[in-house]
Design a protein around this nucleic acid. Structure first.
Lengths: 250, 250
DNA sequence: CGGTCATTTGAGCCGTATCAATCTACGTGG
DNA sequence: CCACGTAGATTGATACGGCTCAAATGACCG
């Protein structure tokens, strides 16, 4: 019951100054395009864990770029249970999935303390015509969303262990792009329950796969703190080669 | 081995005149926008069953709107087997999934004799800035692709019978939008094998589900000719209510 | 007429869901 | 400070849905 809806008051000044990805996102390109004309339309908001950014059925007034923290975009299935469409990490844009419809078909909820950069939709639509960089950034984000969903579709057809392995690899790569290629451990912002709802697996299965990957020495983990001990083995398992644990010659 | 690559020579004249959806697609809005300036950049091409429109790795030079017939957009999974991302029916746009990357990540193959309307990508990108209708049509198509993939993700988590039921309903609705609400039968352009690769089911499972739906009187079918005998029952089964066959009192 | 491809049906097995129990961490109120 | 309730995580036992393997049939085509 901790879904306080109202986000904290937006902070002014340069919205990109505190962003983990300043200047490399849809929000930044809009901000740059607008700056010439008038004041800032792009505002920054902070959410606490569990707070909702927008709900299913809300009018689509803006899209949101994650600056720090993490969101989950969720849907409710016909049977009434939660399905997680995507996790949004810094640099990702949430809300684009409703750019066709006038109302959101998903909800966005903060997984931890999260800063987002709010881009009004009318600004976006206007600047898309005025500014080539904005148009490019928008098309890139939309195309990225499509690629993401296609990859997810493929992933959902792999056996459970491969889904987990592929997920961990994608998380690892995200951190590496952000913090450097030497990173080999990180903290997952989501629970096992969320992970199950994202990957289409029962929570118990998720847990069992983590246990197995640990037992085989591929990863080490303490709660949500994950250490990748064997990249290559994880890679093999993500392609459902089940012999990923053995020390292989060539 | 019947993948003759070269499509038939494009036909000139008004590209929309023979289209099942003339004037209501991305191609038409581009055509209208361009017509003012210069000659037509939008060309029509006919494909035979099995012909490839574009391949994985090809440079993305254009997107294609289906005028009549049907395409499948396919990918190859890490294990090397075909996965069908989407079927493209008249009015659908193929090739948008690569709008971010410079090369296609999917292949498009004709399921039967198919006419497509080719829209060059540079024209599209240019007119997107010049013409609001083009921008709107493009955003709508991209948003539609995202919605489609999200729906597919949900569908892939339902039991086999529900996936088939939901698929048949979606096909039925497509025909009804095109030919009228009284339609209750149609011919599927794809094989059971394709359907399995689309829905993430073994061919045998697809076949068994068709058999069961027939035995229960929900549908009748002769090969790919499908008749929907009980809309409501199909609807119930698409939500994995397994009692869909019984005659129900409210 | 023989080859290939699509479809259907049956038998058996395997992976994952489900059900159930336990354990921990955490926050709340007595 | 402790008793309690709640939520997440882990582990085991069992059931079942769909995949795999196998075989038979029919349609189409060279």
């Amino acid at each position: 019951m901790l879904n306080l809806h109202t986000p904290a008051a937006p902070q002014s000044q340069d919205p990109c100054s505190n962003c983990l990805r300043h200047g490399q996102c849809l929000g930044a390109s809009v901000q740059n395009a607008v700056r010439d004309d008038e004041g800032s339309c792009v505002t920054v908001t902070q959410l606490q864990r569990g707070q909702t950014l927008y709900r299913n059925g809300d009018a689509v007034n803006a899209v949101y770029v994650v600056q720090s923290g993490a969101l989950k975009s969720r849907r409710t299935s016909v049977q009434g249970d939660e399905e997680i469409v995507a996790f949004r990490l810094p640099g990702d844009t949430a809300g684009l999935d409703a750019i066709k419809a006038s109302r959101h078909g998903t909800e966005a909820v903060a997984l931890c303390t999260t800063r987002v950069c709010r881009v009004p939709l009318d600004t976006l639509r206007r600047e898309m015509h005025e500014s080539a960089p904005v148009a490019d950034a928008l098309l890139a984000d939309l195309g990225g969303e499509i690629e993401l969903l296609q990859d997810r579709l493929q992933n959902d057809r792999l056996p459970a262990q491969a889904r987990i392995a592929a997920f961990l690899l994608s998380q690892l790569q995200r951190r590496r792009r952000m913090f450097g290629a030497q990173i080999d451990h990180f903290t997952l912002p989501m629970t096992r329950v969320d992970l199950g709802r994202f990957l289409g697996l029962a929570t118990e299965t998720v847990s069992r796969m983590f246990t197995r990957l640990q037992a085989d020495g591929v990863i080490a983990c303490d709660g949500n703190r994950i250490e990748i001990r064997d990249d290559a083995a994880l890679q093999r398992r993500s392609q459902s080669e089940l012999n990923g644990a053995l020390p292989q010659a060539a």
